[in-house]
Structure formats: C-alpha cells, structure tokens
Amino acid sequence: MNGAAITRALSAGALAISFTIIAASAAEMAPGERKSGYDFMTRDTQGMQDDDTVNPGMLWVLDGEALWNRKAGTAGKACADCHVDARTSMKGVAARYPAFDAARGRPLNLEQRVNLCRSERQQASVFRYESRELLALTAFIGRQSRGAVVEPPSDERLKPFIAAGREMFMQRQGQLNLSCANCHDDNWSKKLAGAVIPQAHPTGYPLYRLEWQGLGSLQRRLRNCLVGMRANAYDFGAPEYVDLELYLMTRARGMPVETPAVRP
C-alpha cells in the first residue's frame, strides 16, 4: 500500500482498528513473535521472491554484478579490483549495516558506504539515491548476504544512534498523530485498506515492490509510511533515516536477510 492509500484509509475512517485509543507501546516485540513481511504475503508473491529465475529483483542484481566489474572514476578501478569476488568479500556485509564510521562520527548505511568507495576509492561521482546504479550495487551486495542473519555491530558508539532511531519509531508524529509502533508493534497482522500491516522488518531491502513496479531502498519505504502518516518525510540520506534503519536492524537481529525480496 502506498502512503496516499494509508492516508485515504485513515481519513475515510475505513480503519478496522482505532488508533486513537491505543497508547504508544513501549514494549519491544518478543523474538518468537517476529515475522518477516514475507509471512504476510500471498503464496503467489512469496513464489516470486523464492525463485531467482522469476524474481524481478534479480534484474538489478545482474546489473549490480556488471557494475561491480566495471572500471570507473579517475582512479580507473572497478569495485572488483579491490574487493575481488563479492561472493566472499561481501558475504554478510549487508547484514551488519548501518555501521559506525569513525571519520564521520556517525553510522553510515550501505548506500552511503558504497558511495564512499565511489568518491574516495574510485574517485568517481557518487550515485543518486534510488538511481538504477545505487539500487543495483546494493542489491548485488545484499544478495551475497541472503540467508545470513541480521547482526548489527555491537559497537558502543552506535548506542546513541539506535536510541534516536527507537525514539523516532515510538514517537507520535504527523497530522494523524500516529507512531510507527502504533501500527507495527501494536497492530501488525491487522488489515489496513486491503493491506496487512507487517512488523516493519528491514530484512529484504533493496526490494521489488509490486506497487513501485521496480526496486526501491528501505528509505523509500520509510518515506512511504511517513507520507501516509502525514509526517515530515526527510530527504534521502538524512541522518534521521539512518538512525531509524539502525533501530529497525537491531529490532530484527537474528532474522534472515532476504535481499532482493518482493513485497506487494
């Protein structure tokens, strides 16, 4: 469901559940209760994700592999010139991002990490958020972690950023005065205008969303929800999103990476 549809559903009063009477929950979800968005999909959509030969997200993975091997920038180097075979060098990497970057004193997500190598190692121009290239490379890197469990770094320096992300998740915001937790902690599995509310796990990104008819990043998904809540949608790459991504990753610790997943 898109942001506009969430808003429509909420303003039309078509909700099966009343959000106004639900207090923002501070209770974290028990690990046994956790379910991927995958578990809420129809068999047909699950089948699209399960089989690489029919998963449209694999088109981006293939593009990413081509880019990985292509020389770029004034350094004239390909990613492969330094990282060699992504199947080994990038295995498990996406499962532990965002990670702390000492030089910048804050966490970077995978997109920013890739762009750092673009600018500093390849001396090439960075890729725009949601560009085919950045989605392709992050899908290709993410694919090397498929099945690996989400394992955010146990890095003391990340703590304040996780806390900031958690606060943003719990805090009511926007014209509809909703928090992420109102839907994703307290009302998951309920229906909202035809869509099942999932638990908001970031395990499949970048993923192929049928609604988008293409691949999109986790930030694009977060923007969709923020727009639906009529809250402030930050610019792509904003530190607020990275904090939220980081919190979602800690919340999904131990769940398998599904990249490139498929969602409705």
């Binding site: 910048r104 997109e111 762009n115 600018s119 960075v126 725009r128 790459g237 904003a238 530190p239």
Partner: peptide
C-alpha cells in the same frame, strides 16, 4: 552539511 558531503548530492 555532513550528509550532503558524504553523498555528494
């Protein structure tokens, strides 16, 4: 700001 420097956008 910092994020723009990182992404260069």
């Amino acid at each position: 700001n910092e994020r723009n420097r990182i992404t260069g956008t």
